[in-house]
Every structure is written in C-alpha cells, then in structure tokens.
Write a protein that binds this DNA or RNA. Structure first.
Lengths: 105, 105
DNA sequence: GAAGGATATGTCAGAATTGACATGGCGTCA
DNA sequence: TGACGCCATGTCAATTCTGACATATCCTTC
C-alpha cells in the first residue's frame, strides 16, 4: 500500500479509534496522520464556529476554496505548514495550535 | 525585507524575547517563526540529550547531516512537516510535539 | 425537479522543499 | 602544526506542495 493511499484512507474515515489499526502504518506514520487530522478537524471547527464558508476562508488566507476543502480533508497534498499557517491566519494562537496537536483527539 | 532574510534573522539570534520586535513581522508571521524555532530547539535538545551527532540523527531519519543542521537552525528551507517527522522519528510522541508548540518558550 | 449555494475531487504549471554533495569553520588531541 | 570529528552553509536535481480552474456532488428552497 503506497503512502498516498494510506493517507487517503486515513483521511477518509479512520478517525474513529487509532488510525493504522489494520493499515500498515508504523506508529510514527500513524502519529503523523493523526496529528494532521487533528489540525484539519480544528480548522473546520474554527470555520464553522465563525459561520464562514470555505470560499470566505480562502479569501482571507489568499488561497482557493478547493484548497481549503483539501485542508479540511487532510488531503495528502496538504502540508502541516499549510494547516498551521491557515489556523494562525484565522486568528488561532500558537498555544491553541499546540494544544490541538497535543490533545489525544 | 524579504521572507528569507526575516527567517534567517529570526533563526539566528532573536530567540530572546519576541521575534518580530523590530522586524516587520506580522503577528501571525512571528507566531509561525517562533513555533518553528521551538521545534528546532527541541530537536537539538532531544539529540544532545541522547548524545547523538547530527550525522547519527541523519542516518536514523534517512536524511543528511547538512539537513539536520538546517533543521536545528530553523532554516527557511525546512518545513514544519520535516521537523515534526524528525521528532516523531526520534521517538517523541504527538503530545510531546504539541506541548513544545504550545508552551510559550 | 430546477436553481443556487456550499463543499468535494481531479488536474496542472509554478513554487517550495528535500537529500545529497562539497566545502568551510571550529575545537581538541597528539 | 596536522589530523580528525562535528557542525554550518551553499548549491542543485528531483520530488512535493500550492493556488487556481473545471467540474462534480450535496443540500435546501421553491
């Protein structure tokens, strides 16, 4: 199973329980994917909490609706850098970002 | 002042106090750089705590000594993804990474 | 069930990141 | 002084990421 497929699957429906349950993710790979999912989920939460559309968020960040959708889906083409920059750009603090990453879902 | 120069300066000697003191970093840019510096510093700490050389760490991570040096220097060519993967690869937990990011230096 | 707004997915050219190599600097030891 | 180990910096080809566009899928509301 290639890396793309793994991230795709993980991003798709494996937020219940540990990602990498019967996927062949090493523990570090699983931790990485989970960390990314946590940020993606939080991004969506911040957006909906403020009643924004993906297009509005995209405008704020100087990006596009499709990329915001991919961010929220933790798509394989989205980096942690992008997610962190997006959260900071929407007003989240460094501490807030850290807590999202640290907290076990 | 361009982005590269800013990160370079910040990475060089501005860990005392807030980066972006008299640099023209916006608050989000400053938060991003500080976050990156925190991870870089922690990487160096983990390495020295274990008594490893940069070359040894590089071997463990499947990278090179020069890239590890750049990671620890929070070089502009280093992504947060790379820093996070490095820390996880050296045995740090997701929570540990989150705490490093969250803690106000 | 057509229309419209919102979100999802595929693709791609341009930009950014990465491992590797070369080389330079620094401290230590003989 | 020279040799050696460790860290820093510059460069670059290959890979990966990103914004943008096109298009598809969902929901509501009428």
């Amino acid at each position: 199973m290639d890396k793309t497929k793994k991230e795709r699957l993980a991003a798709a429906g494996w937020r219940a329980g540990d990602a990498g349950e019967f996927l062949d993710l090493s523990t570090e790979e699983a931790a990485f994917v989970e960390l990314k999912l946590a940020l993606a989920d939080y991004l969506r939460e911040v957006r909906s909490r403020n009643g924004w559309t993906q297009a509005q968020v995209a405008r704020r960040l100087g990006s596009s609706q499709s990329r915001v959708a991919k961010m929220e889906a933790a798509d394989a083409s989205v980096s942690i850098d992008l997610l962190v920059k997006a959260l900071l750009g929407l007003g989240a603090s460094r501490t807030e970002v850290g807590n999202v990453i640290a907290k076990p879902a």
